[in-house]
């Protein structure tokens, strides 16, 4: 599949060029947006998501050449909500940039527990306080996709019909996921859960999950302090399941089992998945959650 998508895009590009029109050059800051753009824009757009597959694009910083490529793109798709801090430290053309979460910016979640600091008349402030995994609420993901649709139509009005049809198919897939997750959330009925990383705020809000989030990495063994913190939390929040963003280390999983906590993976799909696509990964995630029931 990873090889098929570029080939399809290449053919699409040639087909578009055959009609004397270059494909819309679109750059995205994460995989979900790149996926939405590809689904909506095929065959009239060429989507690039340049972050290496093994990095978290939220904390990735592009080199100067990549920044120049973003600057020259016809459209730059931002996630908004403070995602990809590097976008605030580089110069991007505002007229060619789309903040896909701008429509629901008033309902973005402020993270209360980030450490603030003060050192002058400005008062307290912190450097990262908005939850940014907006697409894990699939209704929000559909709105982000709609923003992309609007931007594409503005840039290439002659392909409005194709874009709209593609968007409707994508929106249907996302709303199906939303319905499934609403059902899962209902059936979970407030069962206590842990999450290994503070990235599931929108998932928890939309689908009424009773989540307590810690800050663990799946590929790093938690420190004694982190285990102690979890034990403390477990007293008031007797969760039997912990949601991980990736497969945890065997040692971490074993020690959790000793605490009667089972791990399950719910991938946020930041980067291009090794197999499948956004929709299939999310379906797997939902299946993992259904395993609790």
């Amino acid at each position: 599949m990873r090889f098929i998508v570029p080939i399809v895009l290449l053919i699409a590009g040639f087909s578009t060029m055959a009609h004397g029109e270059t494909a819309l050059n679109v750059y995205a800051v994460n995989y979900p947006l790149a996926y939405f753009a590809e689904r909506i824009g095929t065959p009239h757009v060429a989507v690039t998501f340049p972050a290496p597959p093994d990095t978290d694009p939220a904390f990735w910083s592009p080199d100067q050449d990549t920044i120049r490529q973003y600057q020259q793109a016809d459209l730059i798709l931002l996630n908004g909500a403070g995602y990809a801090k590097w976008t605030q430290k580089v110069s991007l053309p505002m007229l060619r940039t789309v903040d896909t979460s701008r429509r629901f910016r008033d309902t973005l979640i402020n993270i209360e527990d980030s450490v603030t600091h003060s050192h002058g008349p400005e008062g307290d402030h912190s450097h990262g306080d908005i939850a940014f995994t907006t697409w894990l609420d699939f209704s929000q993901a559909a709105q982000q996709a709609e923003e992309i649709l609007v931007a594409f139509i503005k840039k290439r009005p002659q392909h409005k019909e194709v874009f709209t049809q593609n968007y409707e198919a994508l929106a249907q897939d996302l709303m199906d996921l939303d319905e499934q997750m609403l059902e899962v959330g209902k059936r979970l009925d407030g069962i206590a859960l842990f999450a290994s990383h503070p990235i599931y705020h929108y998932l928890a809000r939309r689908y009424l999950l009773n989540l307590e989030m810690v800050t663990w990495e799946p590929d790093v063994s938690p420190s004694d302090a982190q285990w102690h913190h979890l034990t403390e939390l477990h007293r008031d929040h007797p969760a039997k399941w912990m949601i991980w963003e990736g497969e945890p280390l065997a040692s971490s999983a074993r020690r959790l089992e000793e605490m009667n906590i089972t791990g399950l993976v719910f991938s946020p799909c930041f980067s291009t998945p090794t197999s499948g696509d956004f929709i299939t990964v999310m379906k797997e995630n939902i299946a993992h959650l259904e395993g609790i029931l």
Binding site: Q64, I67, R68, Q71, K89, V90, S91, L92, P93, M94, L95, R96
Partner: peptide
Amino acid sequence: TTLDYFEYRNLAPNSGELFTTL
């Protein structure tokens, strides 16, 4: 301003390039 200003006013660098970072 933003990079759009240069595009709108048809301004291009004679030497070097437009700004990329803060």
